[in-house]
């Protein structure tokens, strides 16, 4: 049976010569622009970005209200009081726990599973958008959402930090008790944005891989949420300590290191390397699947 299949296939191929010229493709830039437009026109993306912009505002108001009551606050939230530059970093760290990964999972769910469900994926494939290029286009869309969501938090965090909390004369008081100037403080915020987007890229790659295997966007969302919960539970069990280095989430507190001075980069580098592994795993599985997927 298979032998026969191969021979008919070979016969079919033998009749046609392999084209010498490369096939024509739509320019990649145009595809990416179309994908960006599609992502940004999606109402839920816009709602999501709005929610993210609200996160630091709500924290700022909470801190401002709590600041009126006597007694020093404790923990990270306490470090925000009167120290506006801390707000974007703390907001990003808090959102990285659940909100940001879910946003990225949602984008990844729409990117492949959602397009399949709408019947639009086959439209792209017969255009044709090459399957590898399709993955690239979709990854770009997910990364765009991750970047925009993180940036929304950072920018609104800076604005709310100054408007509601007030900066310490435009300076950042680090957790270590040192004082950083405006430029250095902005650089720290930018560092956390880049690091956070890196972590989210890992989540996005894994979510895309799941998305490539299903046509129900909710499956992707549920898998990522379930994964986060499972990772959280696993890391809370002392007997499973040895699992920690494998869990993507175990390095997610490293963003706070940007508030220490001198910055210990070890945590961020290690978690970024781990994210890179997850990213490669997700990308590999996604490509492997999408090169064959029926549409």
């Amino acid at each position: 049976m298979t032998a026969m299949t191969e021979s008919t296939r070979a016969a079919a191929l033998a009749r046609t010569t392999v084209p010498t010229a490369a096939p024509r493709h739509a320019p990649m830039g145009r595809l990416l622009a179309a994908e960006a437009r599609w992502v940004l026109r999606r109402p839920r993306t816009l709602v999501m970005l709005g929610v993210f912009a609200l996160v630091p505002v709500l924290i700022a108001i909470g801190v401002a209200v709590a600041d009126d009551t006597p007694g020093p606050g404790s923990g990270l939230i306490g470090a925000i009081a009167g120290n506006g530059f801390v707000l974007p970093i703390v907001s990003m760290t808090m959102a990285l726990g659940l909100l940001l990964p879910l946003a990225v999972a949602m984008a990844a769910a729409d990117a492949i599973a959602g397009e399949t469900a709408h019947g639009t994926l086959r439209g792209l494939l017969v255009a044709p958008v090459g399957r590898l290029r399709l993955v690239g286009m979709k990854a770009f869309g997910v990364l765009l959402v991750a970047t925009l969501a993180t940036t929304a938090i950072a920018v609104m965090g800076l604005l709310a930090g100054f408007a509601v909390i007030g900066g310490a004369d435009g300076q950042l008081i680090t957790l270590s008790g040192t004082t950083l100037g405006l430029g250095e403080a902005l650089a720290r915020v930018a560092l956390v944005v880049v690091w956070t987007v890196g972590q989210l890229a890992a989540v996005g790659a894994v979510a895309l891989a799941i998305s490539a295997y299903t046509e129900h966007p909710l499956v992707v969302l549920a898998s990522v949420l379930g994964g986060l919960i499972v990772f959280g539970v696993l890391s809370a069990i002392p007997a499973l300590d040895w699992l920690q280095p494998y869990l993507l989430t175990s390095g997610w507190t490293a963003g706070v290191d940007a508030l220490r001075d001198p910055t210990p980069y070890g945590g961020m580098i290690e978690s970024s390397l781990r994210a890179l592994c997850y990213l490669g795993l997700g990308a590999g599985v996604t490509v492997h699947r999408m090169l064959r997927r029926d549409a």
Partner: peptide
């Protein structure tokens, strides 16, 4: 290649650990 990349990354994760 894609499958190889995925496997390599799992191995890499192990090495990191």
């Amino acid at each position: 290649v894609a499958a190889g990349l995925a496997v390599a990354c799992v191995v890499g994760l192990g090495l990191l650990a």
